[in-house]
Each structure stands twice: as C-alpha cells, then as structure tokens.
C-alpha cells in the first residue's frame, strides 16, 4: 500500500447528526477538549430534528471532515425517500414526515454541498489503514448491527476494501469489535438521537492509535436536550420524535432493528 492518506493519532468520529445542532456543537466541544487531531462525521446530517441548515456551518467552521450518508444523498438528489428501506406503514409514515420536513427546510446551497461530499474516506490511524464510510464500505445504506455482523463478514470487507479498520454509522447504535489479524470494526453510533438505551445522552467514538489496534472509547455527550425538544415542538415535529429525545427510547422506525437490539429498547 502506498501512502498518501493523512495520518492521525487521535480522532473523534461521529455520524447521524439528524439536524440535532445542539448535540453536534456539544460533541465537537467535547472532542476538542480531548485533544483530538481531527474530527470526522460519517454522514446523515438531516432527519428527525429541527432547522436542518443549522448543522452545516458548525461542521465547516470546526473543520469536520464529512461524508455523504444515505439521507444526505437523498436530499441532495431530490429522491422520494431516505433510502432506509422502511416498509412498515407506521415507520414509513414517520420517515416520510421527517424526510419532507428536512427536504423543504434544507437550502439548495446545502443540498449541493452534501451532494459533493465523498462517500468514503481513507486515513491512517498510526500505522493502521482505516476506511471511513456511512453504512458499510460496499453500500451506503447497508446496516451493520452488532448482532447481525459476523466476524467473517467484516474480514471479507477488510480484504475487499484493503483496510484494517472500518468505521461506520447508519444504524444509530454504537459498537466495536476487534478481530484477529489486527483488524477492527467500529460503528460510531449517532449524535443526533439517543442510542435507544433510556439515556438522553448521545454518543461518539474516540480512537487513539496504538499497537496492535487503535483503542476505542465511546463517549456519552450530554447536551441541552430539553431545548432541542422545545425547538422540535415549535417546528411541529411529531410528538413521537420529541419523546425519543426526552426519554432516550426509540419510538419509531424500529422495524429495521434485529431482535437483540430491538429487545433492549422499550418499543
């Protein structure tokens, strides 16, 4: 492998901003206070929360290297839906509400900006080759859940995409797994919505280069979730979304959860 990729020692990585500009600002401040040398966002800037345009200046002003997620891809291209593949009528109802709101409230200049973002990014974390992506390296909207992602499947992705470390998001629930042979898969979770764990905090991942594998720490971020709930109510976003922000439990779009992850939640 030739070089060329930027090398980092300590990075913060998050995904799933979902228009939660208050959590985004809090997560960036938290990461800066931990002396990271770069911050990465793995995509899905919109959905769920209020005032989607508020997140983009925060990302740019704070030099966050950002990828295009499926939501961003849909909004940028003006597709009919978010490409999450919901089929349950209730989930589709709420996903549709959220998508239409976000599409209408996202300025054309930010749609264009999202459309020009890369889908993947390669860096070095110490001497390990890391591939950053949204869903999976092979598919932007593929879900990598902890309970349905076998070691052998991760190893295949690492082989096919020439990577030691895979960093992804898309599911909204964080997990990591070291593998034999110096490989590592980290789903960095989401900072826009709680992790369906009954806590109002949101989560990002801190990675420190190390031998033989980078060290991973998931960092909970407390933010003014009540202020966000107020903004959401003012924007007439669904009560169900606000309940999630205030309770930490997912109330909608649960059909995609595998059994183990679904069972940990309330709904």
């Amino acid at each position: 492998m030739s070089g060329g990729e930027p090398t980092h020692e300590r990075i913060a990585v998050f995904g799933g901003v979902y228009s939660n500009h208050l959590a985004l600002a809090a997560a960036i401040a938290d990461a800066r206070a931990r002396d990271v040398d770069a911050i990465f966002c793995l995509g899905d800037m919109g959905a769920f929360g209020p005032h989607p345009d508020k997140v983009f200046p925060l990302l740019i002003e704070n030099d966050v290297s950002t990828l295009r997620g499926n939501y961003d891809d849909s909004i940028a291209r003006g597709l009919d839906d978010c490409q999450c593949g919901y089929t349950d009528p209730r989930d589709n109802h709420f996903a549709g509400l959220s998508y239409r709101y976000t599409y209408e409230k996202t300025s054309p200049r930010w749609r264009d900006w999202m459309g020009a973002l890369p889908e993947r990014r390669r860096i070095r974390l110490g001497d390990r080759r890391a591939l950053l992506c949204h869903g999976s390296p092979r598919r932007m909207n593929e879900f990598l859940w902890e309970s349905t992602t076998p070691d052998a499947f991760i190893e295949k992705l690492c082989r096919e995409f020439d990577a030691d470390v895979i960093l992804c998001t898309h599911t909204g629930i964080h997990w990591s797994r070291p593998l034999r042979g110096g490989r590592l898969c980290v789903n960095v979770g989401a900072i826009g919505r709680p992790a369906n764990d009954g806590r109002t905090d949101v989560w990002y991942a801190l990675l420190q280069a190390d031998d033989p594998l980078p060290r991973v720490e998931f960092v909970p971020v407390a933010y003014d979730h009540e202020a966000l709930a107020t903004e959401m109510a003012e924007e007439s976003l669904p009560r169900e979304f606000i309940d999630t922000i205030l309770s930490g439990w997912w109330t909608t779009c649960t059909e995609i959860l595998p059994m183990k992850e679904r069972r940990r939640g309330m709904f």
Binding site: T148, T149, P150, A152, F153, E155, K156, L157
Partner: peptide
C-alpha cells in the same frame, strides 16, 4: 466453508 465467503446471515 462459509466463513471464507464472509456470509452475513
């Protein structure tokens, strides 16, 4: 044998 194929489910 399926391990070498990286089967997901």
């Amino acid at each position: 044998r399926s391990r070498a194929w990286g089967v997901k489910e």
